[in-house]
Design a protein around this nucleic acid. Sequence first.
DNA 1: CTGAAAGCGCTTACAG
DNA 2: CTGAAAGCGCTTACAG
Lengths: 352, 352
Amino acid sequence: MVKKTTHMTVKDVAEKAGVSPSTVSRVISNHPKISEETKEKVLKIMDELGYYPNAIARSLASKKTGTIGVILPNRSEDLLLNPFFPEALRGILKGAAAFGYDVLLSTSTEGKNEMEIVKTFIRSSKVDGIVLMSSSVGDESQAYLNNIDFPYSLIGSPYDHKERVNHVDNDNYMAAYELTTYLSMIGRKRIALIAGEIGQMVTMKRVEGYQKALMESNIPYDEHLLFTGKFDEETGYTYGAAILDMTPRPDAIIITDDLIAFGAVKVFQGAGVRIPEDMAIASFNNSILSRYSDIPLTSVEINSFELGYESVNLLVQSIDQGVRGNKVIIPYTIVKRQSTEGHDPLLPSPVS
Amino acid sequence: MVKKTTHMTVKDVAEKAGVSPSTVSRVISNHPKISEETKEKVLKIMDELGYYPNAIARSLASKKTGTIGVILPNRSEDLLLNPFFPEALRGILKGAAAFGYDVLLSTSTEGKNEMEIVKTFIRSSKVDGIVLMSSSVGDESQAYLNNIDFPYSLIGSPYDHKERVNHVDNDNYMAAYELTTYLSMIGRKRIALIAGEIGQMVTMKRVEGYQKALMESNIPYDEHLLFTGKFDEETGYTYGAAILDMTPRPDAIIITDDLIAFGAVKVFQGAGVRIPEDMAIASFNNSILSRYSDIPLTSVEINSFELGYESVNLLVQSIDQGVRGNKVIIPYTIVKRQSTEGHDPLLPSPVS
DNA sequence: CTGAAAGCGCTTACAG
DNA sequence: CTGAAAGCGCTTACAG
């Protein structure tokens, strides 16, 4: 066991190099107007001494932390089951690395709501900016951040003040529109929609796209075919069963998440309903689940990684240049599989 | 848009409350020997002023950050596809919240190796302790941390200095032993093993348990039946195909990760090999994939969440009380499903 | 139980 | 291009 070496400071380096602490500091931050000569010299000493700048002290003096705060939705199941979050987080981490930031993650406390966490991050001066990983109607965090004009970016669409909020999203309206139109094109007449939480902006957009497509396909919108629950399997069971019992029964369902879709598929399989012959199913997120499922699911690839990466890009612009209201749209792709297309289940499913 | 309120400081609070900054500081940190009276008074002023302590300044003065650093494996695919990491991370976040710590996540830089990230976290004084999410043989991070005696805990088993390293793990030796024995009991004679990366401690342990069980079941260990690759589907394809071509062909495979197992299953299905009749398959992690798969997989539930949670518990003890060498074993469960048990695939698969 | 003082390790106008 | 000085907002022996 080696003794913990007492930490070197700028002062130590300065003395050894025969310069002032200010100069050492300038070398650390790569200040432009410092002579190559002294820079080299100081750098050499720093290396010799094994010096490394204390980030905390730098933060206190400079009022920059080099850290971004990432707010995960507090409902912990999301992080667990829904591949969207790890995948988007991976994009965020990649982005943070690329732009030279560290990532502070919100810790999921039961009682505390999201806004409390945001407030704490900011008031304790631990972060330079914030990424909000989901957006719901009337979101308090967004309101707070807009109000104090703190740099942040949003994965999803702002519920308000769109012109001021940096955000990255898919065109969920179009995605749902296209998906619905596709189902109509393959001959489906009664198309139901099972959505995750109604309060989410993403849900709103998808419902709108769905309604618009129905209208253009001359299928009357029937509010009894619209179900909203949670982003879990349970929701799929529940509404799958409800749909099963309807007369006339829908012949297609759009489901806003693969996990929900699984619940529904299970119900239909149990009841001997053939997919896609009797019931076409199309969902969102194109998670690994949708590929490996018993019946591979048609699903919308939303490119979660890109969503995460770009959220950091936007945030960094917001921090460095005060940018507000920037918007990035990430393309989606509808990946068609057996649950709508049908094909011999013994053949390997199309890998996309 | 409201002007960003200039931040209150201890000094402001002190003046308004008619006490010294020292006293305010003691109220903040809930110092024991402070009179209830002054405490109340100061608390009230803090509230009135909307004061919130600056965490950075506290850190600098106190040399405690209230933050733990979590090191994700840098191979980014892991985080993406393998449900172990998000689930363990969820446990870590929960633990951090419970013990009052924030979580700083390692950002995945291509070039930087894990130890560099650990070093940077520590030398920049950004964290009080570190959680290492995986352990491999000859792990440099562990060596470094042991050497400077910095508080950390490990998910997995230390490759060295077991007596000094706080760690939390399953009994992977026993898990593999039991799983192998089980396959032998149901009549399998040639049991292959496909493992993730050989350098991982977890792989070593499982291989040992497997070998021991074979011996006790009077099945000769055949090194040609041991395959090591990566934690991905590809590995499953490759070695699944290799096993398919063997004569005599194995009649069972233990696979150390559900994702790898999927690759293998796909190969066998494509070749018309019946599972489990011709080939029993058992894997690890009991991920959501193993339940939803075409053929539900027998898999070992390792309780990733608990692993994560306990790693933080250990770490906090290490930080606060200087504890070293504590060890926690998290129980595992073998969840038996169709891939070894067989049953009518039309029946709903057993949910566990 | 409370205060005055020094200090944590940097950065940054300011002046030259 | 470089240095002296003040300061970032707290904490913590020390003394009383």
